[in-house]
Simulated assay, not measured.
Amino acid sequence: MVFLTTKMMQRTASFVTLGGLVTSLVTTFLPLWKTMNSELNEMENWFSGLWHTCLYTEEVGIQCKAYDSILSLPMDLQISRVLMFVSVSTGALALLVAFPGLDGIELFMGQPGVKRGVLILAGVLAWVSGLTTLAPVSIVAYTTVVDFWNAGFPDVMPRWEIGEAMFSGWFGGLALVIGGTLFFIAVCMGDFEQRPPSEPNTPQVTHRTTQYMRTEVV
């Protein structure tokens, strides 16, 4: 296909990685990782994130409060904070590293090996960013499901459920992984385009020796 070029693949990888990075950044600060609605008071909705706990009522609206102490947080939220910070940092670094390796950028002109190595490094960083987004979201989702089906809690006791931020986190993590994969595909396409053309098969010339017969005149 005409549009499926190395330059187009590089741009696509950059845009997909940028979309995943923005989604992961928004997910980090959304207070919608877990939701809870009390059956005793259906007018109150609780939301919990990595940094805040929020209460929504129709009379007052939404009110958020930051956690009093980091050490008082559950272990899954503490781990998620660290991993999401690593995810956003490595995702931003992947875009910065990939910029000079893109075709059309004057940096490292005439050095295809350097551009190739830069794009490979960007793909690895995008993969790390995606995995460190998928991991905390999956951990919090797992602990939420386990606590929800815990038979030790009374039935009347409200329980946390999976919030909308979980799905945006999964989407952002997958986008980062896909973006890193597209960087690798762009590198492979560049290697294929730079491959020297194969020489046509030349027919083998067989040298035949001509034998001459000597005749003697008596």
Rank of each mutant, 00 (worst) to 15 (best):
158 P>A: 02
108 F>G: 06
164 E>Y: 09
185 I>T: 13
134 L>A: 00
109 M>I: 11
175 A>E: 09
81 R>T: 08
105 I>V: 15
51 W>K: 13
125 L>W: 03
151 A>I: 06
78 Q>C: 10
88 V>F: 05
117 G>V: 05
87 S>L: 09
59 E>A: 15
65 K>I: 11
75 M>Q: 12
87 S>H: 02
95 L>T: 07
104 G>P: 03
56 Y>C: 10
139 I>D: 03
186 A>M: 04
144 T>E: 04
107 L>V: 13
56 Y>T: 14
53 T>A: 14
59 E>K: 14
72 S>W: 11
159 R>Y: 07
76 D>A: 08
147 D>H: 04
186 A>D: 09
145 V>N: 07
157 M>K: 01
122 A>I: 05
183 F>Q: 14
52 H>S: 10
113 G>R: 12
77 L>M: 13
193 E>Y: 11
137 V>K: 06
124 V>D: 01
97 V>K: 03
88 V>T: 12
120 I>D: 01
191 D>G: 14
131 L>P: 00
128 V>N: 00
92 A>G: 14
190 G>K: 14
85 F>K: 10
118 V>T: 15
165 A>D: 02
97 V>P: 08
82 V>I: 13
165 A>P: 07
72 S>M: 13
182 L>E: 09
69 S>I: 02
190 G>C: 09
151 A>R: 08
136 P>A: 06
83 L>N: 06
159 R>I: 03
154 P>V: 04
172 G>L: 05
56 Y>F: 14
126 A>W: 04
69 S>F: 12
92 A>W: 06
155 D>N: 03
133 T>L: 01
125 L>I: 01
106 E>N: 12
103 D>W: 07
151 A>G: 07
146 V>W: 05
165 A>K: 00
49 G>K: 01
98 A>K: 10
56 Y>P: 02
115 K>G: 08
121 L>S: 14
100 P>M: 08
114 V>D: 06
64 C>Y: 03
55 L>D: 00
134 L>E: 05
94 A>G: 06
150 N>E: 06
103 D>E: 11
132 T>Q: 00
169 G>Q: 01
99 F>T: 13
49 G>E: 02
137 V>Q: 04
84 M>N: 11
147 D>K: 02
142 Y>W: 08
163 G>A: 00
188 C>E: 15
117 G>H: 07
123 G>P: 04
84 M>W: 02
183 F>G: 02
131 L>F: 10
78 Q>P: 06
181 T>W: 12
137 V>A: 12
64 C>A: 03
81 R>I: 13
132 T>Y: 09
79 I>Y: 00
83 L>I: 06
